[in-house]
Design a protein around this nucleic acid. Structure first.
Length: 925
RNA sequence: GCGGAUGUGGUGAAAUUGGUAGACACGCUAGACUUAGGAUCUAGUGCCGCGAGGUGUGUGGGUUCGAGUCCCUCCAUCCGCACCA
């Protein structure tokens, strides 16, 4: 009887679903292990073979952990709010909910076919009201909180209001955009609107007029991480800066904790570096420079306060608010012109155009706070308005950009470094000694920094300061298919909807487009559509961004049906954070940063007992497509086979990979595939076949190189697909998809089947004592497979199974106990066939997954002899089998006595002989 | 420019602490068998050479009895950041 994978797999899928074999228990004496996949956006295209790669790895690992005696949480869900469903709705008028449901059903069907051990009773969908009720609830907590820098955590805003009422903001140290001070009397005299406006500057979720990335083509604002090279990540549309009243998240408050928290995480260095870079911490000082003949003070941020005596001019960003006020009459026109030309350049152009030095003197002077000397104030577009204070103190001797600027405009360059030549370029090393700098002269850079900050602080014109590049995250989108805000407006003041009114569900609209006035689609909803959800003058028309729902979904899996809390304390305390997270690295600055932020926030409020969501993370590589090409002649419209294409002028054309097998084109199918090919002519290989060319590219519909898991499951079975995806190479690496090798893996499973069956399907296992060889093979495999799983080396795991089966087959092993343990070992990789064989070997159905992982016994690997590779000067010359009991000297004697050794020695005595018992022998001559 | 990752046969790759480079698989070559099946079996397959042998892990150097692995140099590819003060 042949290995009938179709029947076997269908049966076991049904069995697992009916028996809820993989349901995770919320209460258990077993230790817990939480394995999580990044949940997918259910797109209309369905899954291709690249998507399940990580899911297969995490599934194997989950099954392995179960075998090791862990209570494993391994859930799956859908990040089901998003743009494609909405774009489709705009085109067709079909509600995105319907599209989404269809796509989810398709995904589920595809996932089910691969035999994952997900606990489907815990499925979450970010677009379901039961789920986004709690996304809205978390938003409310953020709105109701501010960041207290004294306690270094988020605290309820009501505490802040009390403090304002009692003492104003004099004693408050909070993360805020508000820089002024007010007394209790002033606060209490504020109108409600004024109070709320002030509070907005403290809340962690707040409404503010801010410069946002507006994408006209998508009709919405975007967060910084949603912009790649100045274009929208989705659709590659242009993005412009626009001042808009938007919801934002004060993620800046968590900058330091997001940075230091990385240290304890088992993530790749590259992702950690990307996050560090994104947060962009720099330590230095803020210093005020008084403007001559003015009461204005220009604040600058510098990382090199030690070089303050090297300041020979200052540069403001052209957009700096002081520019107009300080510019002297004489320079008004020139400054205006410069500002105008700078504003014409987009941020991106300004960044691209690094080599062109430009700037304009304002006519104004600043007073150096220490020397009291007058320094020129310039404007220049190399200073960015959005970073630091939008102004720099220019130290040309120590900063290359300042040096270039000074050279270009002929400004004095003061050298404050001892024994360093700065005539050709600036000295940017943070080493050496400071000179020519009053009280800093003679100090090392390090000491001078401390001293400078100390002096700046004691003399009262600045303070030590840490700056972050991380910007607050824009949190509203002008879209339909997202979470509505639990917010209504009364007299333009935002109010939160009460908890018992949550969720605020999406109202129906007539069109999924902005209104004529440019309001978001939700503004189209009639009062009737809002129903009794409507409060105040109007509801908030924005929806939340894609990352809202995904920032906390890993918590909901722990308690997915809880109607009273987002997660119960008891359950989150048991499951704790994610032990292993598998997903792509493309979320480095988006999802992975925002989840960490929300986790820390919920931790601060005492709702969860951990402040990092994902302890260990593995980023799987991308699976690339292997495109096939036919070559059409430019003039005669013939198709030329690959080897002869150089004889003609041809254009390569993508051909659907389903029409190609082993690079050979199915000519008849090709002719039928498109009308224009129906009468195509071919120039063939000499053997009469048409051979296609190929190239490795990203998998995409337009390149006709998409391989779906469905067809492979149909052809070879899920177990083969699972093992083949793992066999392709290391999980983290990107690799091309190539179906050619899948036969090898399929044959392996057939060999496994044949270990247990004869040709007629009879079970052939014997119950005698296992042979030494079989025990050695098995235990070698137990050790290697276990070690490989522990280091997530899934590809070498597959090789080890193959080696094991090859050896057992060679040994004609039919021993039941050996085969049973092998089946248990293999069951995490190929669960269907192993369940089937397990039952055939006489065990209860569905229990192979709960068998303990086989225990490695090193005794079985002990050998009487070792085959020593004997090298001369490091080059292996021959093998010599010797008893392992021999001493070093005895080994040396045996080796040198060997006739091949005599040949290589050629009568000479060896200079030295290195013997590593049980390993190698090396003779030096 | 800065930071990170990766470079090994025709292909995907392996080599976990420095110890037989290329396991395992694909592909290919030759043969066997035939209940013609995406079957199985045998032998071979890094490169050069009939062979003995030589040579070989991106380049060049170093440490070592011994280097894919450790150190230095350079090159290529990919990813992230980039006038960040």
């Amino acid at each position: 009887m042949e290995y009938n994978f179709r029947e076997i797999e269908a049966n076991w899928r049904k069995f697992w679903a009916e028996n809820k074999t993989f349901a995770a228990k919320d209460h258990s004496d077993l230790p817990k292990y939480y394995v999580l996949d990044m949940f997918p956006y259910p797109s209309g295209a369905g899954l291709h073979v690249g998507h399940p790669l990580g899911y297969i790895a995490s599934d194997i690992f989950s099954r392995y952990k179960r075998a090791q005696g862990f209570n494993v949480l391994h859930p799956m869900g859908y990040d089901s709010f998003g743009l494609p469903a909405e774009q489709y709705a705009i085109q067709t008028g079909q509600h995105p909910r319907i599209t989404t449901e269809q796509n989810v059903a398709r995904y589920r069907d595809q996932l089910d076919k691969i035999g994952f051990s997900f606990d489907w009773d815990r499925e979450v969908r970010t677009s379901s009201p039961e789920y986004y009720k709690w996304t809205q609830w978390i938003f409310k907590q953020l709105f109701n909180s501010y960041y207290d820098e004294n306690q270094d955590k988020a605290v309820s805003i009501s505490a802040l209001i009390k403090e304002f009422e009692a003492n104003g903001n004099a004693n408050v140290k909070a993360t805020t955009d508000y820089e002024g001070t007010f007394t209790a009397e002033e606060w209490n005299a504020y109108s409600e609107k004024e109070k709320e406006a002030r509070l907005q500057e403290y809340r962690l979720a707040f409404l503010a007029d801010s410069w946002v990335n507006w994408c006209p083509a998508l009709g919405t604002v975007l967060a910084n991480d949603e912009i790649v090279n100045g274009k929208s990540e989705r659709g590659n549309h242009p993005v412009e800066q626009k001042l808009m009243r938007q919801w934002s998240m004060r993620i800046k408050a968590y900058a330091e904790r997001l940075l230091t928290g990385l240290e304890g995480l088992d993530w790749t260095d590259s992702i950690k570096d990307i996050q560090r870079n994104w947060i962009g911490k720099s330590i230095g000082a803020s210093v005020e420079f008084a403007v001559n003949d003015s009461d204005k003070k220009v604040e600058v941020f510098t990382t090199r306060p030690d070089t303050i005596f090297g300041v020979s001019f200052m540069v403001l960003a052209p957009e700096h608010p002081f520019v107009d006020e300080i510019t002297t009459e004489e320079y008004k026109t020139a400054v205006e012109e410069y500002k105008a030309s700078a504003s014409l350049k987009s941020e991106r152009d300004r960044q691209a155009d690094v080599k062109n030095i430009s700037g304009q003197f304002t006519g104004a002077y600043a007073i150096h706070p220490f020397s009291g000397e007058k320094v020129q104030i310039w404007i220049g577009d190399y200073v960015l308005a959005s970073y630091g204070t939008g102004a720099v103190m220019a130290v040309p001797c120590g900063d290359q950009r300042d040096w270039d600027f000074a050279k270009h405009f002929g400004i004095e360059i003061i050298n404050i470094f001892e024994g360093v030549d700065i005539s050709e370029e600036a000295y940017t090393e943070k080493e050496g000694k400071i000179a020519n700098s009053d009280f800093l002269s003679g100090l090392t850079v390090k000491k001078a920094m401390k001293r400078a900050i100390h002096e700046i602080e004691t003399r009262g014109f600045g303070k030590g300061k840490t700056n972050y590049r991380l910007r607050d995250a824009v949190f509203s989108r002008q879209r339909y298919w997202g979470e509505p805000f639990p917010v209504y407006f009364q007299d333009d003041i935002p109010y939160l909807v009460e908890d018992d009114k949550l969720p605020i569900t999406l109202p129906d609209v007539d069109k999924y487009l902005p209104t004529e006035e440019g309001e978001p689609p939700l503004a189209r909803a009639t009062d009737a559509a809002w129903g009794d959800q409507l409060q105040g003058d109007r509801m908030d028309y924005n929806t939340m961004p894609g990352w809202a729902g995904s920032s906390w979904y890993f918590l909901r899996y722990m308690d997915p049906h809880n109607e009273n809390e987002f997660v119960s304390k008891e359950k989150v305390e048991y499951w704790n954070n994610v032990d292993l997270y598998i997903g792509g690295s493309e979320h480095a600055t988006g999802h992975l940063l925002y989840s960490r932020f929300w986790t820390k926030f919920l931790y601060d409020l005492g709702y969860i007992p951990f402040d990092e969501p994902f302890q260990k993370m593995i980023n799987q590589g991308m699976i690339l497509g292997r495109s096939s090409f036919v070559y059409r002649t430019d003039e005669t419209n013939q198709f030329v086979t690959s080897s002869k294409r150089k004889e003609f002028k041809t254009t390569p054309i993508h051909v659907d990979i389903s029409l190609v097998e082993n690079d050979i084109l199915d000519i008849e199918a090709f002719k039928k595939s498109r009308e224009e090919y129906a009468n195509a002519e071919f120039i063939l290989e000499d053997d009469g076949t048409y051979v296609c060319g190929h190239e490795v590219e990203k998998m995409s519909k337009s390149k006709y190189n998409v391989q779906t898991p469905d067809e492979l499951v149909e052809k070879f079975g899920a177990d083969t697909l699972r093992m083949y995806e793992m066999f392709l190479g290391p999980l983290e690496q990107s690799k091309p998809w190539d179906t050619q090798g899948i036969n090898g893996v399929h044959n392996f499973l057939r060999k496994v089947w044949k270990l247990v069956h004869d040709r007629d399907g009879n079970i052939t296992v014997t119950e005698d004592e296992p042979t030494k060889d079989a025990l050695k093979t098995l235990h070698k495999t137990i050790k290697k497979v276990g070690d490989d799983l522990d280091r997530f080396s899934f590809n070498t795991g597959v090789s080890n199974f193959m080696i094991c089966v090859n050896e057992l087959s060679d040994q004609k092993c039919r021993n039941k106990s050996i085969i049973e343990q092998f089946v248990v070992l293999l069951s995490s990789y190929a669960p269907h066939i192993c369940e089937e064989l397990w039952v055939k070997l006489g065990h209860e159905a569905g229990t192979v997954g709960t068998q303990p992982f086989p225990v490695f016994n090193p005794d079985h690997l002990i050998e009487a002899n070792h085959k020593y590779p004997v090298s001369f000067n490091g080059k292996m010359r021959f093998m010599l089998e010797l008893p392992t009991t021999l001493s070093k000297d005895e080994i040396e004697k045996e080796v040198l006595a060997h006739e091949t050794a005599q040949k290589w020695l050629d009568g000479n005595a060896p200079k030295k002989v290195i013997v590593v018992p049980g390993k190698i022998v090396n003779v030096v001559i």
